[in-house]
Every structure is written in C-alpha cells, then in structure tokens.
Design a protein around this nucleic acid. Sequence first.
DNA 1: GAGCCGTGGGT
DNA 2: TACCCAAGGCT
Length: 320
Amino acid sequence: MLQQTTVAAVIPYFERFLDAFPDVTALARAPQDRVMALWAGLGYYARARNLHACAQAVAENGGRFPDTVAGLLELPGIGPYTAAAIAAIAFGRPVVPVDGNVERVTARLFAMTDPLPGSRKAIARQAMTLNADRAAIARPSDFAQALFDLGAGVCTPRTPACVLCPWREACAGNRQGIAATLPCRAPKVARPVRHGAHFCMVDAAGGILLVRRPEKGLLGGMMGLPGPHWRDAAWPQAEALDHAPTAPRLRAKWQQVGQVKHVFTHFTLIVDVYAARISAFPNSLVGQGGLIHYGNDVDVALPTLMRKCVELARDSNIFD
DNA sequence: GAGCCGTGGGT
DNA sequence: TACCCAAGGCT
C-alpha cells in the first residue's frame, strides 16, 4: 500500500484491510471483488491484484515468505525496493532499500548532480555503501527505517532542516549549499488533456448502472460508468449518445449535468457527465453490465474518478 | 528504457 | 492555480 502512497492516506485502508484479511492465507482465499472493493480509492489498482496473487503464491508455499532478496523478487508486486525492505525489516538482512527518501538523502550526501531518472542506478550504488559500518549492519531494520524517517522528517524535498541533521557534517550537498536543490530532475513534459463521456442511469430505488472495466489498463478490474473510450478530442453530445446504454425511448432522457475533471499521473481527463432517470432497468441492460445499487457506504470497487461522476449526477437537479 | 498506472496533501 | 511528491512495479 505504501508504494508511491503517503502513510496518512494508507492508514485507514490498512486498518480495514487487516480487519478483513487478518493473515496471508485469509487474503489468499478471498474473492478478488472483495479485495478490489477494499482498495477502491487508494489508486494504483495493479498493486491490489498483485498483492492478492502474491498472497496466493505465499499460501501455496505453506504461508511462509521467502527470507532472501532473490526469493522475494520472485513474488508478484515485489520489486527491488520492496524486496530489500522486507529482507531488511522482516528478516534482518543487511541491505538498504532505496525509495524516494533514500534517493534524496543519498544524492544530497554525495552531492550527486546528475538528473533523475538517469542517475538512479548511480544513486542506488552509493546508497548500498550507507550501511557499511558495524552499527548499521548490526540493525538493518532500524537502519532502513531511520533512513526513511530522515528523508521524511529532516531531509525533506523542499526545505530540508539541515541544522537538525545528524549527517550535516558529512553532507557534501550541505557543504556546497546545494542540498535543497537535489536531486536534480530531468525537464518535465506537459500533461496532455483527454476527454471522455460517462452515463449515470438512476432507477426509482436510487440504483445506478455500472460496468466492469477490463482487467488490464487504466483502472483495471474496477467498476465504472458506461461510456465511450477516452480520446484527445471532446465528445460532441450527439456522438457521445451513440455510446450510451440503449433502451426504448431512453436516448431522449439523457441530460448533461456537468463535467468532471480528474488528473492522472500522465494526463488530465475531462468527462462530460450525463444522467437519466428511469423507473427500472431493462433486463437487456442488466445483462450487459452489472446492476449495482450505489449508496454512501456500499461495497463496490468504484475509483475516485467514477465516484465524482456519480456524485455529480446524483446532486444534479434533473431528478427533482 | 521509458511509458503506464491513482490519489490526496502540501506549497 | 498549478505544480510537486509520496515506503514503486510491470510491460
């Protein structure tokens, strides 16, 4: 959960997750829908699928995790960072997990000015030398977590608290007065804008029609509102309606209720949201997707983008 | 190697 | 507002 996600964002998900799956075998035998529903809103949904697959692999191995970096790397969702973190923290192996914090500390400590991501391998090589003294090797878990805390609390991205830093004297970046500017980053590229249209059909009971998204790709394995694919150009209303759920006399009921803007890592999405009220869902539609009644606390794997679209549709006044 | 994959908080 | 950034991994 902590891969590319802040501790504060993770905590409530972590608590609910462990309540539902107290150990690795409980997670292994859980249905994927349940796993995805408990992950909904946290993002990077491949992590949830990988974690589920990982639990199943571990369960088939007698419920025991590998205790070496090489063994851990074989598991789905566990890459170089996580393998090193587990090896150091859970099994006391003398390795240094290199995450964003450790990259930053290392680049500053050695005044490495080559830009990321090209300098990543050189930074990782230097980071391996950080625990080369007896006290660090004796306590790999404490050393790794101390490095995270140094990066998160002292050697921070914007304005590092160098006066409080235990490594102040040794830090070449501080000595040269360039610590706050490191690590350098390659020039950023503009985030493109893409467009979509999604349809929120509400029945008399307040149920909405959701469809399951493909297993792979963006928001893979999650639920969503039906609509055409996302593309560079906006969807004119007449064209968008050709991709609306179809039923007798339904086309005339669709009303655009506004737009939702959502920023992904690599593009910004603008969604035209359409809503329609019908008395009951035609059976033909229910067969196509999945009919889900969506309430405020419903157990549905609905990502934040789709939740925003649903909220907009429900708050619109066309249902008054 | 580089692009893809979410979301929320901080500045 | 518009960025940046976060206990990265997979293809």
